[in-house]
Amino acid sequence: MDESIVRTEEQEFLEEDICVAENLVYKKPKTLTDIDLHYCPGCGHGVVHRLLMEVVEEMDIQDKVIGVAPVGCAVFAYNYMDIDMQEAAHGRATAVATGIIRVLPDKLVFTYQGDGDLAAIGTAETLHTCNRGENILIVFINNAVYGMTSGQMAPTTLPGMVTTTSPFGRDVKTMGYPLKMTDLVAQLPGTYYVTRQAVNNASNVRKTKKAIQKSFQYLQQKKGTCFIEVVSNCPSNWKMTPVEANKFVEEKLIPFYPLGDLKVPKEELK
């Protein structure tokens, strides 16, 4: 340390007394690369990336995990996660994951997909992958909008919600109803664990992490498809500040997409 720099007492306190190992509550997992995330401030994508990579580090499964990135805002997920990854065509992540898990059955394969990717263009692949019970984890980021292409209506857009292609609000009579894919896949015998979580506050972030941990454990036991919907946000296209966006998640999205497990393994039911 450069002794010549004059410090206030407050600064000395900060550096020497607080930033010590025993006080450390958060540290970037080694399984995240040093590349700067391109996500907008407040976006849920970054949080879920971190959670996934924390779990990979804590479970020491970096050499087992293979990820599949979507087409959507998370298209560059492979830049941030320090694991082997494949970038799939729009909507086809679960087909790509099927190809991987079928030839490398001892690996832990996950897809990471938005609502447009998973619940619109990729609906058939999503349903059939779950129906076959492929031993993969599907992480479904529901932000009720097409983020990457700048805010068009998604299959998950709420009734009445304004987007660039539903400028007067989503009229369910002509534009269809929000598609609850998570409820659908929970009905399929191939899925083993289906849950809906969120990352809008610290408590929900912790629960989402728990769901990811459980899913990788189930994959290790070859139990079948695990499906985690994360009710997320898109401050930029919702035209909100991050704080307003998380409030919208709390007040509008979560009431429509209630959080919690939709299907839990029978042996864990008491």
């Binding site: 799939a88 086809r92 079928r102 030839v103």
Partner: peptide, 10 residues
Amino acid sequence: VASINMIYGA
């Protein structure tokens, strides 16, 4: 569509 993307993965 699915089969060609399974090929991609495998």
